[in-house]
Write a protein that binds this DNA or RNA. Structure first.
Lengths: 350, 350
DNA sequence: AGGCGCTGGGAAACCCTTTTCCCAGCCGCA
DNA sequence: TGCGGCTGGGAAAAGGGTTTCCCAGCGCCT
C-alpha cells in the first residue's frame, strides 16, 4: 500500500525559499528565474525551474498582491438574485475575466441595499481591482456608494449617473429588427403585447415598435400597446384581446417569449393558424420557451453573454488606465424560427 | 463646485500605520485596539477607533491572510455551465458562505477538464480555504485532481470516490413522495415518463417509482418505464404512447416539469381531462413551467438552494476541522397543485 | 599590468497586519 | 525604602514574494 505523495494536512505550503534552497540560490534569484526577470545564467534558471517543479511550487497570490498592490480579482455584484437575464451576463463576464487571469468574487445582494453595502466593504478589504454590477432588469439603478475609488462597470441595469460606464442591450434596435422582419415578410397589421409599462424594457420596446411601424407607413394594430405582465397567461389573454380589437391582425410582436408562447397557444386554440394567418415574434430567445412553443418562436436574442464579456473588457481597460464612460447599447440579433413564416397566399411575388 | 472627498486615484490606501500615527500610538497598539486584543486603556482604544473612522480605514485582507494562513475565501467550481439546477445550489452556497464571512470565487469550467485544472491551480495560488464542486446533473463525476490538500464538498453531482463528501437530492425519496401522493388520492394505474435512461436522475427515479408502486400492490401502467428526453416534445409524444398502451391509465408521473407540461398539453388536446380522468405529476418545481402549465403541476421540489446552503455548512465545518464524509441525500418536498386534483367520481369514500 | 565594463547573483528593503515578547512606570505592601 | 506585580504600550519579527541596489569576478583593451 503506497502513501499518496500529498503533503500532510498541517504541513506548511512550499515557499519560494524552499525552491531557492533546493536550487542552491537565494530567494531573490529564484524569483527572477521563475518570472523571467533579471540576468541569470540559463543553467541557473533551469535549476530553479527544476526545483519548483519538483516541489510543486505555487506562488502565494496574497503575498504577490500585497507587494504589487493589485489583487487580480474583480467583484461581481448582482443586485437582484441571479436570474434568467443576469446569469448569461455573469457567465460572459466570468469567462472574459478568467481569460484575463482575473478571478471573480460572486456577490448576490438579493435586492438588499444593506447587503450590497456589506459586500462593497468586503470587496474593498480584499482590494479588488474593479467591480461589475448587474441586475435582473434593464431599469436604471442608483450608482453604488463607493468609499474608495474603484473602476465600476454596470451591465444590463445601467447606473442613473450618466458619467458611469453602463452596458445595456439595444432594446430600440431589437424592436426595429422585429418590426422590419415582420414588414419584410409581408405583415401589415402588427399588434404589440408586452409586460408592465413601468418596466424600461417594455416601455422602450413599445415606443420603438410604434415608431418603426409609423416610419414604414404602418400603424399599430388596435391603436395601442397591450401592456400587462411577463407571463404566458397574459400572452393568452392579450392575444384574444388583440384579435377581438382587430380581427384582421396579421402579426403579434410580443415583449417576451413567455408572452409569445401564451399568444401562440391562444391563437391555435382559437383556430387561427400560425404563421399562415398570424405571425408571432417573441423577445429574449429563451430557448426552452422559444423552441418548445408551437410553432417555435422567431425572437430577439439580446446577446447577454456577449454583453457580460464586453463589460469585463471595459472593466479591464479601466483597470489598465483606459477608462471608458457613459452608456453603451449593444446590438441584438434576430433569431428566425417558424412562427413568422410565410403568410397566407405567399410563396411567389404577385 | 465642490470636490468629492474621495482619495486621488493614485493615492496609497490608508494603512494601520496611518491610523496609529493619527492616534499617536504604534501600529501594534492600533491593531490591538481595532481587534479588541491586548490590554489597553479605554481612552487609548477610543482614540484609535476614532482615527480609523476618520481615515475610513479598511484592513488589507491580503496582509491579514498572509499572516493568518487563511484567506476566508472558497472556490465554487461549476463543472457544466451554470444552469437551471446548479444555479440555486450556487446561490444557496454563496448565501451561507457570505453569512460565514467567506467570499466566493466563481469558476465556470464549461465541462472542460483542462479549464477545470487551470481553475484549481489558480484557486490554490489564492490559498482558498475550501472548494465546492457542483455540476448540472446528478450523475457522479470523477473527483477533482488536487495537488494540495483542501477540503472539498461535491453538491448535486457526487464524486465517484465514496470517501469524498457529496450532497445530492434524495431522488428515491422524491419518487416515493409522488407515488404515495398519487396512490393516496385514489390513482391506481400510474405510468412513468422520463428522460434518458443513462441519466442517473431518470434511472433512480424510475427504479424507485417501480419499487414504490409494487410495494403498494400496484403496477406500472404499460409494464415499463417510458425513457426518452427531457423535453416537452417527448412529454407530448410519451403521453400518447402511454395512453395507447393502457387506455385506462389514470396518472402520469413525469421525470421533469417539461415532460409533464408536454404531457398535459397532449392529454388536453386528446380530450382527456386533467386531473379528472388522468393526474399528472412533474419533477423539479421549475416554477415557470409548473405554474404556466394547464393545469398547474404537482411536482417535486429538490430544495436545491437548501442543498447549496448545506454544502457550504459542511465545507465550513471541514475547514474548521470537523470533516464529514460520504454521500448525503437531502430530502425533497412535494408541491401539490391542480394537476393531481380529485379523480373522477371522487369526493366521498366508497 | 591596470582599468573599465559587463555578467551573475546575493542582501535587504518593502508591502501590511498581527502577535509575541519585553519594558517602563506605578501602586501597594512590608 | 525596597521589591513584587500589574498595567499600558512599544519594538520587532513573521508571513511570502519582488525589486532595487550592490558587489565580486572575469574578460578585454590599451
Amino acid at each position: 500500500m503506497t502513501v499518496t505523495p500529498r503533503r500532510e494536512a498541517g504541513a506548511r505550503a512550499v515557499t519560494i525559499s524552499d525552491v531557492a534552497a533546493l536550487a542552491g540560490v537565494s530567494p531573490g534569484t529564484a524569483s527572477k528565474a521563475l518570472n523571467g526577470r533579471g540576468r541569470l545564467r540559463p543553467e541557473t534558471r533551469e535549476r530553479v525551474l527544476d526545483a519548483a517543479r519538483k516541489l510543486d511550487f505555487r506562488p502565494n497570490a496574497m503575498a504577490q498582491g500585497l507587494l504589487s498592490g493589485r489583487s487580480f480579482t474583480v467583484g461581481l455584484i448582482t443586485t437582484d438574485s441571479v436570474g434568467r437575464f443576469s446569469l448569461p451576463v455573469l457567465l460572459g463576464a466570468e469567462d472574459a475575466l478568467g481569460a484575463g487571469r482575473m478571478s471573480v468574487f460572486l456577490c448576490d445582494t438579493r435586492g438588499d441595499r444593506i447587503r450590497e453595502q456589506h459586500y462593497v466593504r468586503t470587496l474593498l478589504e480584499r482590494r479588488i481591482d474593479g467591480l461589475i454590477v448587474t441586475g435582473r432588469r434593464t431599469d436604471p439603478r442608483p450608482p453604488l456608494v463607493l468609499p474608495a475609488p474603484v473602476p465600476v462597470v454596470y451591465a444590463l441595469g445601467p447606473s442613473t449617473d450618466p458619467a458611469d460606464v453602463s452596458l445595456v442591450p439595444d432594446d430600440a434596435g431589437g424592436a426595429r429588427l422585429v418590426v422590419d422582419h415582420l414588414l419584410a415578410t409581408g405583415r401589415r397589421r402588427v399588434a404589440h403585447l408586452t409586460g408592465p409599462a413601468h418596466h424600461a424594457a417594455a416601455a422602450v420596446r413599445a415606443e420603438h415598435t410604434t415608431l418603426a411601424l409609423r416610419a414604414a407607413g404602418a400603424e399599430l394594430s388596435g391603436g395601442r400597446v397591450y401592456f400587462g405582465e411577463w407571463s404566458e397567461a397574459w400572452g393568452r389573454q392579450a392575444a384574444l384581446i388583440a384579435l377581438r380589437a382587430d380581427p384582421e391582425v396579421d402579426a403579434l410582436f410580443c415583449g417576451s417569449d413567455q408572452i409569445a408562447r401564451g399568444a401562440a397557444d391562444a391563437l391555435r386554440e382559437a383556430g387561427r393558424r400560425v404563421p399562415a394567418e398570424v405571425a408571432i415574434a417573441g423577445y429574449d430567445n429563451w430557448e426552452v420557451m422559444a423552441e418548445a412553443s408551437r410553432p417555435p418562436l422567431t425572437t430577439v436574442d439580446m446577446n447577454l453573454t456577449e454583453l457580460g464579456r464586453t463589460a469585463a473588457l471595459r472593466l479591464m481597460d479601466a483597470i489598465d488606465g483606459r477608462p471608458a464612460s457613459g452608456l453603451e447599447a449593444l446590438p441584438c440579433r434576430l433569431v428566425v424560427r417558424e412562427s413568422t413564416g410565410a403568410p397566407e397566399g405567399d410563396g411567389r411575388p404577385r
